[in-house]
């Protein structure tokens, strides 16, 4: 029977030896992807070891959830107007806190110098950190959104539609925020007033993605602030952030990450 090209390809792929050979080669000559996975793994482990910081951030977000209605009005009508904005501002604070500690686990355990002096491509470290930070923000967004739905009395009629909109926006928002945050973290790492400079650069640059997320979420429900809604423009802004800042981080990784 004639197997043809694809037949041989399937046979080769399903052959156990092929996988063993592949694994061996990856161990010998690690690729960019292997390093990327490695960074995600060690970041995940370090977060697991420092669970208290994750819970601390969650508690802080919870405090904000309670504080916003006090500041902006507890009446039902006002709460409806401010609820979407409140959710995204809480997400913004979560992101700012996580980005402030982006490289801290590695720095505190002196692992960053080892990583930087190894043969690992710096772009892999940066991209790995971006992806992990995006996931870390998401891990906090999920419980925060749950509490937000309860505390801000989000109606069940619009809940599914709202979640359908918020989930993709959140994913892009997190990636955009994490890529920009990685860039800003690296830029301010060697300055004297890191804690002032980081938010000073991060918030103005991040305002575009926050505005886009708020404007796109506002279309759900009967929101009075719907006035200036232009969906295409906001989607463009939202999608441009992760692409632009990841590309910048990738290209400038050798300048940004120095021993």
């Amino acid at each position: 029977m004639e197997l043809g090209f694809y037949g041989y390809l399937i046979l080769e792929v399903t052959n156990k030896n092929t996988f063993e050979r592949l694994g061996e080669n990856l161990r010998k000559y690690p690729s960019f992807f292997t390093y990327f996975i490695f960074i995600n793994k060690i970041s995940c482990r370090s977060i697991w070891m420092r669970k208290a910081s994750w819970f601390g951030t969650l508690l802080f977000a919870g405090c904000l959830l309670i504080l916003f209605p006090f500041g902006l009005g507890t009446e039902a009508l006002q709460r409806n107007d401010v609820r979407i904005g409140s959710l995204w501002i809480i997400n913004e604070f979560i992101a700012a806190l996580i980005i402030g500690r982006m490289f801290s686990p590695e720095q505190e355990s002196f692992a960053l110098d080892y990583i930087l002096s190894s043969r690992m491509p710096r772009a892999a470290l940066l991209v790995g950190k971006i992806s992990f930070t995006a996931l870390q923000i998401l891990s906090l967004q999920i419980p925060v959104t749950f509490f937000w739905i309860i505390l801000y009395n989000v109606q069940t009629e619009i809940l599914i539609e709202l979640l359908k909109t918020i989930v993709p926006i959140s994913l892009i928002f997190n990636l955009g925020t994490a890529s920009l945050g990685a860039l800003v973290s690296c830029l301010t790492a060697r300055s004297l007033a890191k804690e002032i400079l980081q938010p000073m650069l991060f918030f103005p640059l991040q305002s575009g993605v926050l505005l886009a997320a708020v404007s796109l979420s506002m279309q759900i429900g009967d929101n009075v602030l719907l006035g200036a809604f232009s969906s295409t423009a906001w989607w463009t802004v939202l999608s441009a952030y992760p692409i632009l800042f990841t590309a910048m981080g990738f290209l400038l990784s050798n300048v940004l990450l120095q021993e």
Partner: peptide
Amino acid sequence: GYLVLRHFT
């Protein structure tokens, strides 16, 4: 931000 960053680096 640029000017402050320069000053503190």
